[in-house]
Structure formats: structure tokens, C-alpha cells
Design a protein around this nucleic acid. Sequence first.
DNA 1: CCGTTTAGAATACGAGTGTATCCCAAAAGC
DNA 2: GCTTTTGGGATACACTCGTATTCTAAACGG
Lengths: 200, 200
Amino acid sequence: MPKVVDRAQQRRDIGAALLRLLAREGLEEVSVRTVAAEAGRSAGAVQKYFSSKDELLRFALDLTGERATERLLRVDPAGPTKDVLRRYVEATLPLDEDRRAEAVVWAAFAVRGALRADFGAVLAEVDREVRGHLAELLGAALAAGRIRQDLDPFAVADALIAVSDGLSVRLLYNPDDQAVLLTALDTALTALLGAGTDEL
Amino acid sequence: MPKVVDRAQQRRDIGAALLRLLAREGLEEVSVRTVAAEAGRSAGAVQKYFSSKDELLRFALDLTGERATERLLRVDPAGPTKDVLRRYVEATLPLDEDRRAEAVVWAAFAVRGALRADFGAVLAEVDREVRGHLAELLGAALAAGRIRQDLDPFAVADALIAVSDGLSVRLLYNPDDQAVLLTALDTALTALLGAGTDEL
DNA sequence: CCGTTTAGAATACGAGTGTATCCCAAAAGC
DNA sequence: GCTTTTGGGATACACTCGTATTCTAAACGG
């Protein structure tokens, strides 16, 4: 009897429009009406799928987490440990328009997470997964004797995440320093893994 | 003839109220009226000192930069290089309410700087100064043979800033991981400077 | 002490906000 | 093909926003 559509897909479409808008104009420009316009719908249509603005933002945050995870899963895990890790980090750095958009969204939600525990919990969970993944990778390299033997995989993983996030934020407002900051990434990777291992 | 007040001081007072509010409630709660209320004044009074909201935010950003610089200048520069650097980094990490407030403000403006070049320029300038300061410190330690001799002071400085910023952001939305993240800071410092130098 | 200048409060205005409600058209089951 | 359910557009409402304007009271120079 009813007119039926794919609700999940509609939500994803609207969420995608929100992320586009957020990356382009910033969080303060996000409203039910502007998101609806970006999605090519009326404000009422958006309301059918998200009963409040908060729910809309929460969904957009989850969507960003999914996208980040997907991007990390696409990274080629073959080759020297340092190169693999560099690829992981570069997968999240704002080095082109797509990654920049994601980084803007991530940073905007990070700030929101500083004051709203429910948003912070989502980000913390994403970190926890990435940290586990990196530590696993480092543990394997450790067991194979391909990196320095005195490393703590989790501590190195946390340090890498920090470097990645720090470079990401700085690239956002200072894209001119891209070359310099990629050098810094290389320095950090070399230092953290121990210079000249992996070739042994 | 006129009724006269210390305009610069009034601006600083209002700016301080803005930073308090921003740290406590987030950027989206900052308006001319809420800032005025936080400062114990009327909205009209705020308008006398800041002709637009944008000017108000710009001033608050400058004020945050000054505060960060002051905090860094108060760091004790004596002792082993690694300890000094740890103190510098910890001076900016959100490890108590004051530093947390500053970190929230900084992060909020960083996101704004991603989309508004004029805000980004202020942040880039602060980074430039900190980077120069750190590189100078590292250069001196290098000349004195107290750290690994193959280090590039500027690359290490950039890596340190990245680690610091990354840890800062993550601590904002995930304060429970404080102990783990301070371990990661130690790991990063040790790795970047070369384990076991400085004691030589 | 008076006239002038400014601080600062109050008010007004148009625009945009989130949300609630109403209405119509489209789709599916009988 | 009619009825019923729903998608989705339109509208309404109360509120906040940034900014412009207007007003009063206080402080200084003559």
C-alpha cells in the first residue's frame, strides 16, 4: 500500500550532501535547509529521514568514519614497513581535494567531540581500531625482525597516529608547507622504526 | 571632554570572556550576545569595541596566540634536550583545565583556518615561530654533540609539532587515554632524538 | 559648572535557525 | 480502480543571529 523507497540509501545521499557542504563551507554553514539544497531536496524531505539536526550530524560523523576506514583498507600492505606506514598516513593527509574534504570534516567533528562526549566516543572508537590495526602490523614486522626489536607496537602506533593527525591539521590551514611536512613525516617514520632496518 | 576608558584593556577583557565561553561551550555558542553576557556587559558595549563579529574572532585568535607564546616562554630550558622538549610539548597539551581551554580554542580556530585563509595565516605564523624556536634549540644541542648528529633540526621540529598537535587533538576528545598518550610522546621523543644520547 | 564627547545600554530589523504541522501526489494491496 | 499509506514539498512559529540606530548618563576640558 505505501509508497516505498530505500530509506538507508536516501539517508546516505543526504549524509553525502552534508559532508560535501561541510567540507566546502564549514560546520557553521550546515543547517537543515542548506543541506537540503545541497542534496537537491526540500527541507521537509530531510526531516523525514532525520528527526533532528543532531541526528543528522551524528549520521554524518559515522559516515566519515566509514569512509576513513574504507580508505585505509584500500592501502597496499606490501613492501617495506616504513613504506606501508607512509602509505597509511598519506591516505588520511589532505593532499588532494577528496582527502582534504575528509580531513576538514574530521577536524570539525574532533572539535565538537571535545565538548560533546557522544561525538568524542565515535572518534575514540575509530582511533582504537586504527591503533589496533597498526599495532598488529608493527607486531608482525617485529616478529619477522624487520624493525628495531625494542619497539612497543602500541606506543609506536599511537605516536604515528599523533604525527598523522598533527600533520593533517597543519596541512589544512597551511597547505603551502606540504613538501616540508612530508619531509617531517619521513623523518618521523625513520626515527620511530629505527633507521636502516627493514633492509636487513 | 569625553568619557575615556582604556580601550585596549576593554578589548582584552571582552576577548578573555570570549575565550572562556568558547572553551566551555564551543564556537557555535559564541555570538555577540553570549560574549557580552559572559563579559557582564550589554551587546551594545561589545559593539563599541568590535565593529563586527569577525573582528571579534580575529582578536580572540590573536589573544590565543599570545597566550600560547607566553606559556612556551615560561618553560624551563635547562636539562637534557629530551626533557626540555617534553616540557615544551606538555605546555601545550590539554592536561589541565587551563590548557584544555586553550587547546579547544586552538582547535576551533584551526578548523576555521582550513576554510578562511586569514585565520589560517595567523596559525601558520605561530607555527613558524615555534618551529624556529625548536630548530634553534635542536641546533644548539646538535652543535654540543648532545643528540644524534644526523638530525635535520627543522624536520625534527616539524615532526615534534605534529606529534604535539596530534596528541593534543586526541586528548581533547579522549582524555581517558592520557597515560597511554604520554607514553607515546615519550616514545616519539626518544625515537626522534636518538635513544640514549644526551647522557654521553 | 557647563558643553561636548564618548561609553554603553536599549531597541529595531531583516534574515536564518530548528522544528511542528499541514497538504498533496504517488505507489502498492485489495 | 479505489483506498490507504507514505514520501516529500510548503508553510508556520518562535527564536537567535549580526548589525544599525537611538538614547541616556557619565566624564573630562574650558
